[in-house]
Design a protein around this nucleic acid. Sequence first.
DNA 1: CATCAAAATTAACGCGCGTAAAATTTATGT
DNA 2: ACATAAATTTTACGCGCGTTAATTTTGATG
Lengths: 341, 341
Amino acid sequence: MHKIRNMEEFAAVSGISRPTVSKYFNDPSSVRASTRRKIEDALERFDYRPNIYAVNQNRRLTKNVGIVVPYLADPFFAEIVRVIERRCIDAGFTPSLFSSHGQQSLENDILDTLRSLKPAGVLMAPLGRGSDKLAIEAFCRNVPTVLFDSNIDGMGEAFVGSDNFSFVSQTVEYLDRTGPPPAFFEMRHPANPNANKRRAAYLKMMERLGRTPEVIKIEGTGWGFEEIGHQGGLKVLEEDKLTTNTVLCSNDRLAIGFLAACYEKGLNVGRTDDCVLRVASHDDHPFSRFTCPSLTTAAHDYTAVSEHAVETLFRLIESGGRLEHRSEQLFAARLIMRESA
Amino acid sequence: MHKIRNMEEFAAVSGISRPTVSKYFNDPSSVRASTRRKIEDALERFDYRPNIYAVNQNRRLTKNVGIVVPYLADPFFAEIVRVIERRCIDAGFTPSLFSSHGQQSLENDILDTLRSLKPAGVLMAPLGRGSDKLAIEAFCRNVPTVLFDSNIDGMGEAFVGSDNFSFVSQTVEYLDRTGPPPAFFEMRHPANPNANKRRAAYLKMMERLGRTPEVIKIEGTGWGFEEIGHQGGLKVLEEDKLTTNTVLCSNDRLAIGFLAACYEKGLNVGRTDDCVLRVASHDDHPFSRFTCPSLTTAAHDYTAVSEHAVETLFRLIESGGRLEHRSEQLFAARLIMRESA
DNA sequence: CATCAAAATTAACGCGCGTAAAATTTATGT
DNA sequence: ACATAAATTTTACGCGCGTTAATTTTGATG
């Protein structure tokens, strides 16, 4: 009983012809129950798996799906990836995970690699501002792609993400209802288009509420948001630029840095009487409940975004790679009230 | 000038025979300079890349390397992955990234997937206590593997990691020198063998210093260390079980949770006079500088570990998959003094 | 210009599997 | 038991490239 070398040999020991075995591996339900049993019996006795290289060479479309995220060291993406991977595996696909690590050159390299993987589809969260738009556009023309997290106008067959207005409207409304209206704390040159939408939402909400908006723009580039928020926070606090005691950060990672700056400066943050500052933010970053104080924030519907992105990709794949029209699905946020505001 | 379909066509447009082109792609320096120029000229005019499935089918050994980490949502691993990926790409390999997401079943699935990828080698950080030892052992027999981060006795051709004694000895020595000796804060059932080594190192150091050790074991399972540290911290503080004012956490993620608990309880942490508690830890987690107060910790030599792991894997691959003897390389820690102790 | 090793070409086979067409067997209903 | 549809088997080709062996070309050398 030597090791099975190929499908020919496996077909022999299972007493079924090779084409039928091949059919089985492509779709177990496509063969008669008695045949399936024979094959699965043999599968238990011998551990054989079709050579994926030979399989993929001959299928015009592989069962691979690519997953691309801009920055894997951000637990937000790590969490989304976890959900997406599982759904893909359950649906019989083989996910390949890539992180651009915040670099355009890497993002482009990944697109090249993906092309040669001939994936059935790709789920991509682009760098955003740092993306090579032309490269992504060219890629999307060749490979069925669903964008998520950050949208790039018109690219990909669909976009799935969070509704930035929903995030900001809830936090602004809450802060305004429970105290002074917030100033908006953000990077001057955000890495990601969501930031721009959030600022716009902030301005619109403040107008709607009849408040005077105040946007604090801090310097810094790259994906080290905590450090940028920290440095920017120190600067703002030292220069005493704050005209309000309520700060709404564009995202949790900035807020984590800002809270560290507040702590260093001895400023008590929270909504109780002994506090001089309220801080809130957006994303419900996995660490936001462990900041000091814990961070009031607006949560992504991680599950809904992940699952809808995957579902959309599957529909796209079944439709042969093109969709009637480019859809944009946005999910609302959920306000998470904690101690910081 | 239609699209190039295969190496045959590409060879035609570059004016070189297919076997020579094939030789070029396997090692560009193996063809004459003038030939190389012709091929690279054609490469610029037509964008052709060999079909990776056809290539890998015929090579007995692919140029793939697998990278497996236990928990990608931990920025520690995300950071290591970033360095490792780059080194692999630069060396002409194609890295494939996998996360076990803390689940044994997933780790085993990944091993199966990896086997069918026929990688030249694998860099694996196992789950540790949660790993299926037999499955990993069987895998290592078939695939050249270098373990990193957590060691499993005798498995893989080499281990590269951090020297837990170096971590703990430095923090204990520092804490003892600058104040009361620390109690050790850890999970009762740690996910990872490093924790056991750290506890042992703590006990040995305390003995060496002539101090009475005190180990605080908290409940909780899984990879949500911050939450476990948080809950465990609250419990310890509420029950007033602390017989010392200095706490050394087994790792930073526990410490992040513990610090959150201290903050909630209104305990001032730090080394200044107004503080009632000192807290230190190990790992230099990317977020440890943004805790409140910033966390005194012992840092991994990320770069050294990552690069030595990769170098070891490359040596292993060049040696045909087996090494003379299993080597274990440990790197020392660097004490990072911040505000918490 | 003759020499000769190195490099390239030609021709051909094989890798493991998808897939198609035709022939055959099996299951289902009457 | 018979007709019919469905599933399986047989046979054969092709995918794109690695690789080998025999042959031819190239280019540096004396």
